[in-house]
Amino acid sequence: MKKLALLISFAAMMIFSGCASTTQGGAVGIDRSQFITVSEAEMDQSAALAYRQITAQANAKHVLNTDKKLTDRVRGISKRLIAQVGAFRKDALKWNWQVNVINDPTINAWCMPGGRIVVYTGIIEKLKLTDAELAAILGHEMSHALREHSRERASTEQMKDVGIAVASSAAGLGDLGSAALNMAAQYTFTLPFSRTHETEADLMGVELMA
């Protein structure tokens, strides 16, 4: 019972202390209160390590920024978008933004926390993107970082794990019970958040591009 009480107290403390908005609303008015408990420093450190690993591996395979013209194009568009991030958060203007292009057929692009961007050549070449279309994609991905959706998602997962522990302890369930509750949380709590994140990134990305 003592363990259960501690878990409940910890969960309550996280809920009441973790609600805020990471950005200003901008013209599109994105001001939803976010549940965040994972520290910015922790997330940034994790993102920095992952980004170094990804770019180092790409460099070792000789697929990192192999086309100077294309790399300059992506970086040029990114630079113009980065100049506008102050509309949502002034501190992001001082982020150590990094932009790299990986020669890979994957149709994808992403921006890690702290402004660490990778664009795969596949999304540009296969979709024959114009500068405006590429700006729309980059703006969307940058908005995920500005809005700190990764940190919010990590906080949600952290809280979900605490909730599972509380429910399992109260019900006297073992590992099997926890696994079942985890599956329920995934489909009733985590997935709807992703839709919210995508909508926010769409709206913010359009403003950055404009």
Rank of each mutant, 00 (worst) to 15 (best):
Q45A: 15
S9H: 04
A48H: 11
A135C: 09
F88G: 00
M209E: 07
R89Y: 00
F193Q: 08
G25W: 01
D175K: 12
G115L: 00
I117A: 06
M14K: 13
V119Q: 05
T188E: 10
K90R: 09
F189W: 06
A48P: 08
F189C: 13
K90I: 01
Y51G: 00
G76Y: 05
I124S: 11
V99C: 05
F35C: 09
I117V: 15
L127T: 11
E148K: 07
K94M: 13
V118D: 08
L127E: 10
L93H: 10
S178M: 04
M14V: 11
K128V: 06
L146R: 02
G86V: 00
K126Y: 04
F10L: 13
A132N: 08
I30G: 03
A171N: 08
A165V: 03
P105G: 02
A48F: 08
I77W: 02
K126R: 14
A92Y: 01
A135W: 04
G174K: 09
H149I: 13
D175T: 09
L176V: 09
A180Q: 12
K69S: 15
L4M: 06
A5F: 12
D67L: 11
Q24L: 07
A50W: 08
A167V: 02
L203I: 09
S169P: 03
T156A: 10
A184S: 15
V38C: 11
T55W: 07
K68C: 08
M204G: 02
N96V: 06
V166C: 06
R75L: 07
D67Q: 14
Q57K: 12
T121Y: 02
T66C: 10
E200F: 05
L191R: 10
E148P: 00
T121F: 00
H62L: 11
I107D: 06
E198R: 08
L93N: 10
F16L: 14
L7M: 09
S46Y: 14
V101G: 07
K69Q: 15
N59G: 14
R195A: 00
T196Y: 11
A154K: 09
S178V: 02
G115R: 00
S46P: 07
M183E: 14
Y120R: 05
K94S: 15
K128H: 14
G86L: 00
A179K: 12
I30D: 01
I36W: 04
N182H: 13
V63Y: 04
A109K: 04
D161P: 06
S39R: 03
S194V: 11
T188A: 08
I164G: 06
V99D: 02
S194P: 07
M1E: 06
A184C: 10
H62I: 07
A41D: 09
L208Q: 08
N108G: 14
Q98E: 05
I164S: 05
A210I: 06
D161Q: 12
A56W: 15
I102V: 10
N103I: 01
M13Q: 14
T22I: 07
K68V: 10
Q98A: 01
E152F: 01
G114M: 05
I117Q: 04
L6M: 12
